[in-house]
Simulated scan of single mutants.
Amino acid sequence: MFRRRLKKKEVQEFPNTIEGFGYIVKENGEIRSKENDESYNFDYIPKDRPYNELRYKAFIDLVGDLVEEKLQAEPLGFKKTIVPTNADPSSDEPYSYIFMTPNALTTTDRLLLLIPGNNTRIGQWTRRAMCDDNLINGSMIQVATLAKERGYETIILNPNGIYWYDGKAREMPPLTHMNFVMLPENEGPEVHCSYVFDKFISKVKAENIVAMTLGWGGFCLTQLLNEHFDFFKNKVKAVAMADSTHSSDLIEGDDKRIWIRSHVLNWAASNNTRGEPLKDTRLGCDSLSSGDELAEFTVTHCIEDMVRFIDTKMGDYVPEEVDDEIIREEDLQAEEEELNERVHVIDIH
């Protein structure tokens, strides 16, 4: 009787630099092939999805490292803050971190909160936007830069970095084994956001707070609204959402629903003209088209509109108003001309 010899699983090794994969990061933030100037090619080996997924993960990890480096470097200067707050990074106990600008907790003026969607590393909007479009606006680097120019301090939450294995907090559980633990006191995106609120956001001195969210981040924010409405009512001036997954049915009370109606605006993936109002009553706030049916590009394509909405709510931007008197005068003139024409026709007959 012959025993079948099991083949030892081959461990895949990939380059440890973006350049090693054959790509460069241009000055404008585009990640392009050195060979043909094209964006990242997922199908490196046709019809071998498992290999291509491993290769992409290794590549996107390097992109994530670069994003974190740029956020922490000048002029943005974000600092890591460990969560849970009692964790010791020098030990083997699980820990993760959020990013804050140096004066985020002490400024009495302006503060921006950034909450991403699912399956992304801290400081990122979507992986696809970073690879296909641009590293700067596909991550939170662009909006953090715009915030700094407008005098904001910023806190970046990390609701996905809650799976601890191989000595590191990661944004998704492992694909090949189940040997992981959840980050203590941060066992889910909503729990993480609640923890960060209790430990940090609730203690800020800023009187003018705004937020930007993507996907599930919008749901997390509405849960905070339910739990801490007085804080939102007194301090939060505007929330710009992208493809939010929250529901007005889960908002507790008419007072909170009224607040959302007047303080929140959502941009949603749609191939309608960008900025065109969308009929969607589920969210309890107005929703506008992103101009692109792919949700991965909602933030990157609408970032200027989202920032302008916040600027407007903060009084930094005044939309052009049409003079009603001029319109009325033009209407009256048109009516008068139409009436004269009718009189002229009658006279002729």
Rank of each mutant, 00 (worst) to 15 (best):
M1P: 15
K9P: 02
V11W: 00
N16T: 11
G29R: 02
K34C: 06
D37H: 13
S39H: 15
Y56N: 15
A58R: 15
F59V: 00
F59Y: 06
I60P: 01
G64T: 12
E68V: 08
E74C: 01
P75I: 03
K79G: 00
N86M: 08
S90T: 07
N103V: 04
L105K: 04
L105Y: 05
T107H: 05
I115R: 03
R128H: 13
D132V: 11
N134S: 12
I136S: 02
I141A: 03
T145N: 10
T154A: 12
L157G: 04
N158L: 03
P159W: 10
E171P: 01
M172A: 05
L175R: 04
E187P: 05
H192A: 01
C193G: 04
F197Q: 02
K199R: 11
K199F: 05
I201S: 00
K205L: 14
A206L: 12
E207P: 04
N208P: 03
V210I: 14
L214C: 05
C220P: 01
N226K: 10
E227I: 02
D230V: 10
F231Y: 15
K233N: 12
K233M: 03
M241E: 12
T245V: 02
E252P: 04
G253Y: 10
D254M: 06
D255I: 03
N266K: 09
R274Q: 13
L288S: 09
S290L: 06
H301Y: 12
I303D: 05
D305I: 04
I310E: 03
I310P: 03
G315F: 07
D316Q: 11
V322G: 11
R328C: 02
A334C: 10
A334H: 12
E336C: 04
E336W: 09
R342G: 01
H349W: 13
